[in-house]
């Protein structure tokens, strides 16, 4: 078992008295897909926000590779190799699809001095990869929701991340779209990119993940293979309880 790509240790986040994350610890193995599940309000998005550098945790550490990146700002985190998509997508609405992806290439983890022609080719193949070929000239604000999600992924991938955080990519998609997106995620992973995904759609999480971490009330209540987690009593109780 190789060393984890990222590990989170005793991560705690307080929002004026409310404990959103309470000493959360888990690790993400390189080249694998790790899923994060839990009832609403469990703290999943907060976890992503802290890892991606939107705010500092109140306590604990985040170790990526050999670096302690606790408290690093988002752009620095990205340049180190962690990218993230948002549940409520955040494209550059006024820019074209092409330019949205271009920004990722220019400023991300492997921002190099692109030659104009090379860059164009890279952007074109990226668009094709996520299923947005032919839409390069459209403004982001003209895209339908599914394509906006694809754009979000393309832009994140353009930054050449080592670790990709996917925030509820599959929520709200039709069954066909879900299968398509799941395939895309597999292909991303196949390129060697480690994936950490928050998901509510159980079929997707269980079908894709090598490992699952379960959060409830800001705490990790289970960690293991999909099958192990599915049978865990604490997890079952948490979900049943949440249904009230």
């Amino acid at each position: 078992m190789s060393a984890p790509l990222m590990s989170v240790r005793a991560l705690t986040v307080n929002f004026s008295g409310l404990r959103a994350l309470d000493r959360v610890s888990f690790s993400v193995n390189p080249g694998k897909i790790t899923g994060i599940i839990g009832p609403n309000g469990a703290g999943k998005t907060t976890l992503f926000n802290v890892i991606a550098g939107h705010y500092r945790p109140s306590g604990g550490q985040i170790i990526f590779g050999e670096r302690n990146i606790t408290g690093w700002k988002s752009d620095r985190v990205c340049r180190l190799g962690i990218s993230r998509t948002y549940q409520h997508v955040r494209p550059f609405l006024g820019l074209s699809v092409y330019n949205n992806v271009k920004v990722g290439f220019l400023y991300g983890h492997q921002a190099v001095n692109w030659k104009q022609k090379e860059l164009s080719q890279e952007i074109a193949s990226m668009l094709e990869f996520v299923g947005l070929e032919g839409l390069g000239e459209k403004r982001a604000e003209e895209l339908i929701p599914l394509n906006r999600k694809r754009l979000e992924v393309a832009r994140a991938l353009a930054t050449h991340p080592r670790l990709l955080l996917l925030d509820e990519l599959i929520a709200g998609l039709t069954p066909t779209e879900t299968l398509s997106m799941m395939e895309t995620i597999r292909q991303i992973n196949a390129k060697g990119i480690t994936v950490l995904m928050i998901e509510h759609v159980m079929k997707a999480v269980m079908g894709l993940s090598d490992k699952v971490v379960v959060l409830h009330h800001g705490e990790v209540i289970a960690e293991g293979s999909p099958a192990q987690v599915a049978g865990d009593q604490a997890v079952i109780d948490a979900y049943l309880g949440a249904q009230h």
Binding site: S74, D75, C78, R90, V103, G104, L106, Y107, R155
Partner: peptide, 20 residues
């Protein structure tokens, strides 16, 4: 391009590594 990106979505720009 970075300026435009930051103007339109500051968080988004940060996420893709733009030094805002």
């Amino acid at each position: 391009l970075a300026v435009q990106a930051v103007t339109q979505n500051r968080r988004g720009a940060l996420l893709v590594g733009v030094n805002t």
